[in-house]
């Protein structure tokens, strides 16, 4: 369990994935990658171990992931083989609207 703050960065304990929090519900939440709790990117805690087979959907750099209630949104900043989940529920890839280029 960890408190997620907008702009905070987390890494997977079981694969190469890293994410940045875009928006998050208040208080401690259970954010996992590959079925294992994610670590603060500055953490020295040991990594390794196995990706849970139900959480092996992978994440792709630049994609946004949200929970069904859309209270949590994260941006993938490094690819990984694990899938993201909030309290055991896999996050969904967010559709993005195409905007005209202006700069």
């Amino acid at each position: 369990m960890a408190e997620l703050k907008t702009g905070g960065r987390f890494k997977s304990a079981v694969c190469t994935a890293e994410i940045m929090v875009v928006s998050a519900p208040a208080g401690d939440v259970d954010l996992t990658c590959g079925g294992v709790a994610m670590l603060d990117s500055a953490s020295d805690a040991a990594t390794g171990g196995e990706i849970h087979p139900d959480h092996a959907v992978g994440v792709a750099i630049g994609k946004r992931y949200i929970n069904e209630e859309e209270t949590l949104e994260v941006l993938c900043v490094k690819n990984g083989d694990g899938g993201l989940a909030l309290a055991g529920q896999l996050l969904l890839q967010k559709d993005t609207k195409k905007l005209p280029k202006t700069d």
Partner: peptide, 24 residues
């Protein structure tokens, strides 16, 4: 602040959306 500029980019630009031939 970093939050203003990064928010602007994340809300208006799709990552890696340009092709190899795109030039601005």
């Amino acid at each position: 602040r970093h939050k203003h500029l990064v928010s602007y980019i994340l809300s208006s630009v799709e990552f890696a959306s340009a092709g190899e031939e795109d030039a601005s």
